[in-house]
Design a protein around this nucleic acid. Structure first.
Length: 197
DNA sequence: AGTGAGATGGCCT
DNA sequence: GGCCATCTCACTA
């Protein structure tokens, strides 16, 4: 097993956590065993001041209350009637900021067509759903946690930073460069699907 | 390549 | 009632 990320990691400023999560290993335990995948795309959501964030102006509802937990918890919500999105809560309790995990590269399944290149698709593939909302990611017995990569899982890739996806309804925040990804990585979201031959 | 709509349901004012 | 931190397919050209 790699070394688990400690609670301290998630308390840092959210933009830093979003960038530093690139290359870290997302681990999910199911009946079948533990699946490990490498994070290749994230977005930061900055709480009260961020119009695109569910906790804009400190809004707190039953849906988003997990965002108010201490950094190192999971926040999972349901969108568009059919998809779940997985986020990592950051900062201290009462500061409702989080990082959306948008894409991962499976380490168990190498060479398989990308099925984890988008926030909804990766939740479906990894079987993440509302049962995981509010879960601690740092407790020993948690079914989801994060690890440092092992030596052979470390790759040198270029980080691209740009505006977030799908938030046109938030004009004042839509251009904030809070999306981080590995440039050219084949598991990053929103790539054109394979051309016919 | 770019645009648009449908699926589908819970959340929020 | 309208809006969504999505995804896929059909259509234009």
């Amino acid at each position: 097993m790699g070394r688990r990320l400690p609670a301290r990691f998630f308390k840092a400023p959210t933009e830093k956590v979003a960038r530093d999560l690139l290359g870290k290993i997302l681990c999910v335990r199911t009946r079948a065993g533990v699946s490990r995948s490498r994070i290749v795309e994230t977005e930061a959501y900055l709480g009260a001041k961020d119009q695109a964030c569910h906790s804009y102006r400190n809004r707190k509802t039953d849906r988003n209350k997990a965002m108010y937990l201490r950094g190192g918890h999971g926040y999972v919500y349901f969108v568009y009637g059919m998809h779940f999105c997985f986020n990592v809560v950051t900062r201290d309790a009462g500061m409702p900021e989080a990082v959306l995990i948008r894409a991962v590269e499976p380490l168990d399944d190498e060479g398989v067509e990308p099925m984890t290149n988008g926030p909804g698709k990766l939740c479906r593939h990894l079987r993440i759903d509302r049962r995981h909302d509010g879960l601690s990611l740092t407790r020993r017995d948690s079914p989801i946690w994060l690890e440092e990569p092992k030596a052979r899982e470390i790759k040198k890739e270029t980080i691209h930073r740009g505006p977030r996806v799908g938030i046109d309804g938030a004009p004042e925040a839509k251009d904030w460069p809070l999306r981080f990804l590995y440039e050219g990585n084949r598991y990053v979201s929103k790539k054109p699907r394979p051309r016919s031959m």
